[in-house]
Write a protein that binds this DNA or RNA. Structure first.
Length: 413
RNA sequence: GUGGUCGUAGCUCAACGGUAGAGCCCCGGAUUGUGGUUCCGGACGUUGCGGGUUCAAAUCCCGUCGGCCACCCCA
């Protein structure tokens, strides 16, 4: 039987890495005062239609369930989050600061950095429309990278505000209703041929030169960013961010700030993205709840590739994934197996990771097993009983301890 | 969805029309209580799957399913 395309198995080695990733993300998000939540993996397709009314994206795991419901494996978290918040908006003190780490599904052709099932950490602040909230989110996004040893030479946050382009359209007397159509032209600016872009702009009675000139606006003269940049400066993060007016994000629901995080080595590779979506909760709740919101997500696939591709982050991984401690009990005299098992129980209760051979095995073999499971100590039980021989495997040194001192000794080491 | 490229032992690969091999890993042994080195031995495959050409196919051809990559798309 084959695995479905675009899905992954997590054997212990991969799972250990996943834990490393998630544990660090979780700890950092909590350190920012965010609390964890989750929602269903399967949602009514309706939830994704509501976002903006536009036709559904094709790349959904969509099917009709046995109760004849039109359902989707969730392709992103934000609509679910909006639904959760809209339903209980009054119960939580604002701002709501929530995060989740969970799987998502997209029916795409798997390729570099893109699978059909992937994980994301999603972090959102709801009920605060200030630059302080925007900056806090960007600060958290940066912290979620730095915790793995990534520095400002490894990644870069590109930020923009869609309102700038809205104002640009108004200034040129173009209908604001066509903003998202216009933004998709901007989004493609770098990839598309000049003639194509110029042709598209013509329907807005705009020329490429005007757009180019606006793109080149020096950061100091871009309105509305001074507060955000001041906030980022207070956090000491100015080296991580860069204003980039070409960043507009593909989703229609973004209303103000938008940002993306890029791998500096391969600048085309996007590690994370997010922005402000002040109308989405109102849309999802059909006007019942109206709260400003902003958030971002980091995907695990590209992020993992980056962490495993850099020497300095790779070293951290190797260090973190080593078996931290543990004792392997070598039963040198099978008559002592009952005592060995009792000792194992005692040690385990005191928090030591303990392993031993379930079957009678030659001593040499047991030492080999101790090595392969990565134990720090081998504890030999045999003729010395009630004393034991404790060997520090890496140093090949050993000493004799009484069995009662063992817990203390292993606890300290 | 379109195109390119690759599928051989658990892993990395060789053999490129003539009996499928190596290294690593795994298991066992080298006088019965000390491991990561060494030596010896062992297990291991319908060559992704299905069809075709041929006296003979891992090898050539067609299809199909997967992996990787690019385009499209990107929440």
């Amino acid at each position: 039987m084959q695995r479905l395309p675009g899905f992954r198995d997590f054997y212990p080695e991969e799972f250990a890495f996943r834990n490393y990733l998630f544990d660090n993300w979780r700890r950092v998000a909590r350190s920012f005062g965010f609390v964890e939540y989750d929602g269903p993996t399967l949602e009514p397709t309706e939830l994704y239609k509501k976002k903006s009314g536009e036709e559904l994206k094709t790349q959904l795991f969509r099917f009709v369930d046995q109760g004849n419901r039109d359902v989707c494996m969730r392709p992103e978290m934000t609509p679910t989050l909006a639904r959760l918040v809209a339903a209980r908006a009054r119960e939580y003190r604002k701002p709501i600061k929530w995060f989740s780490i969970s799987p998502f599904f997209r029916f795409e052709k798997p390729q570099k950095g893109r699978l059909r099932e992937f994980y994301q950490i999603n972090c959102d602040i709801i009920g605060d429309d200030s630059p302080a909230a925007d900056a806090e989110l960007i600060g958290l996004a940066i912290a979620l990278h730095r915790v793995f040893g990534l520095t400002e030479t490894d990644f870069l946050v590109r930020i923009n505000n869609r309102n700038l382009w809205a104002e640009f359209l108004i200034k040129h007397q173009q209908p604001i209703e066509r903003l998202s159509e216009f933004l998709s032209i901007i989004d493609r600016l770098e990839r598309e041929k000049e003639e194509v872009t110029a042709g598209k702009l013509r329907s807005f009675q705009l020329d490429l030169a005007a757009v180019r000139e606006f793109l080149g606006t020096p950061p100091g003269s871009v309105p509305g960013f001074s507060e955000l940049f001041r906030e980022l400066q207070w956090r000491g993060l100015e080296g991580f961010v860069q204003l980039d007016l070409t960043i507009v994000r593909g989703l229609d629901y973004y209303t103000g700030l938008v940002f993306e995080i890029f791998d500096r080595e391969k600048e085309n590779r996007s590690l994370a993205g997010g922005g402000r979506y002040n109308n989405l909760i109102s849309t999802i709740s059909e006007g019942e709840t109206d709260l400003p919101a902003a958030g971002f997500a980091i995907g695990d696939v590209t992020f993992t590739k980056l962490l495993q591709g850099l020497d300095h982050t790779r070293q951290r991984i190797d260090y973190a994934l080593r078996t931290p401690c543990g004792a392997f009990i070598v039963i040198a005299d099978e008559m002592r197996r009952p005592e060995a098992l009792e000792l194992a129980q005692t040690l385990r209760r005191s928090g030591v990771i303990v392993d031993y051979s379930l079957q009678p095995t030659k001593v040499a073999r047991q030492f080999q097993q101790a090595g392969t499971v990565g134990a720090k100590y081998a504890v030999v039980i045999g003729q010395e009983w009630p004393q034991v021989r404790v060997k520090l495997l890496a140093e090949r040194t050993e000493q004799i301890l009484s069995k009662d001192d063992l817990s203390l000794f292993l606890g300290d080491n």
